[in-house]
Simulated scan of single mutants.
Amino acid sequence: MKDRFSDKASGYAAFRPKYPETLFNHLYTHTKAFDAAWDAGTGNGQVAAVLAGKFNRVYATDISIKQLMKVPNMANLSSFVADEAAPQISDASIDLITVAQAIHWFQVDKFCDEVSRVAKPGALLATWGYGLIQLPSAYQPAVDRFYSKVVGPYWDPERKHIDNSYADISIPFKELKPSEHFEMTYKWNAESLEGYLNTWSSVGNYVKEKGENPVPRLISELTSKGLPAAFEVMFPLFTRLFRV
Score class of each variant (00 low, 15 high):
T29V: 08
D39L: 02
F173V: 03
E212G: 01
S78N: 09
T127C: 12
P236M: 11
A102H: 04
R240M: 12
F231C: 04
C112S: 06
L125H: 06
D35K: 09
K120G: 06
L68H: 07
V244P: 04
H30P: 01
I162E: 02
G129K: 08
D113K: 06
R145T: 07
E175T: 09
V71W: 11
R117Y: 11
E183S: 12
A75F: 11
D156C: 06
L135P: 04
F242H: 09
P236Y: 14
Q140T: 12
A167H: 15
S170Q: 13
H30F: 14
S10Q: 06
A14Y: 09
S201E: 13
E114Y: 07
N198W: 02
S165W: 07
Y28H: 11
T29F: 10
A100R: 04
A9Y: 00
S116D: 14
A119K: 12
D156Q: 12
T199Y: 12
I89S: 00
A52N: 11
I63V: 13
V47E: 02
A230E: 15
G226T: 05
V203L: 14
L124D: 07
L132C: 02
F111L: 06
T199H: 08
N205A: 15
D113P: 01
F235I: 02
F182M: 03
Y196M: 12
K120F: 12
W200K: 12
A52S: 14
T239E: 05
S148A: 08
F15T: 00
A86C: 14
P214H: 07
K66F: 14
A13K: 10
A82I: 02
K187W: 05
L218T: 10
S6K: 10
A49R: 05
L124A: 01
A126K: 08
Q67A: 11
M234D: 04
W128Q: 03
Y19Q: 08
I63M: 05
V47N: 04
A40E: 06
P236I: 14
F15P: 06
V207T: 08
F80L: 10
Q88W: 07
A230I: 08
E212R: 03
A85H: 11
I65Q: 15
L218I: 12
A190L: 08
L197Q: 05
P216W: 09
A40K: 04
E212H: 00
A100P: 09
M1W: 01
A60K: 04
Y139F: 15
V115Q: 04
A49W: 07
A102Y: 07
